[in-house]
Write a protein that binds this DNA or RNA. Structure first.
Lengths: 105, 105
DNA sequence: CAATTAATTAGCGAGTACGCTAAATAATGC
DNA sequence: GCATTATTTAGCGTACTCGCTAATTAATTG
């Protein structure tokens, strides 16, 4: 086994936006809620589940989108956000792989 | 399958310090370096690998320690930091399990 | 086309994060 | 005990985060 961290740092940097996005509890909760509700929700449906105001929700969603964790499509006057589960899982698993053997869930 | 996120939010909150700690690239790199070097290093050995000044390193180490990701023991006039791999893995895996099936490595 | 609904953008203020230098503490060695 | 080595603590400035309210854009409806 290597004693160095060769590709780790490059990988690491690529996931920077994801880890920054995950730092805020509201954003983690948004990902969970999106996940439990099937992966797609309108901005309004999301906003309804949080106590902060709509502009604050919008900004959190933008952070998640810029991190590549959500995609958004306009449908009429609503905007539908979709969880990009694979991006989240890849970032998490990619990071996790550097530490210890994978766990049998 | 449940449509709600019951224990997810509690679990989530418990890992808040870990996710905050992981938000900074230097701290992620510290965890990687500690991992690749066997899990224990003195503050000085760690500091030597980063371009920021020693007090800055100290503070990052404290953040990691408060998140439960490192433990520290005094040995003479040096301080030895130890990676608490299990805490990191549990936080990561615990969060990850809410999303999709376990990965096909 | 005026009004309503859905959501964003603009911009502000308080708090936090992160870098730094200088000073302090703690253990070791002469 | 005085100097040296290892590390932390104190304190400062800049920059970013996150909440808010007010104003704006865009699509729908009467």
């Amino acid at each position: 086994m290597s004693r160095r961290a060769p590709a780790a740092l490059a990988k690491h940097d690529a996931d920077a936006a994801v880890f920054s996005a995950l730092a805020h509890p509201t954003r983690r909760e948004m990902l969970l809620i999106l996940n439990f509700r099937g992966g797609t929700m309108s901005a309004g449906e999301i906003a309804a589940r949080f106590s902060c105001r709509w502009p604050t929700v919008t900004r959190h969603l933008q952070v998640l989108e810029r991190a590549g964790l959500l995609s958004v499509t306009k449908r009429g006057r609503t905007r539908v956000y979709r969880l990009k589960r694979r991006v989240l899982l890849d970032a998490l698993d990619g990071w996790r792989r550097w530490f210890g053997a994978s766990k049998p869930a």
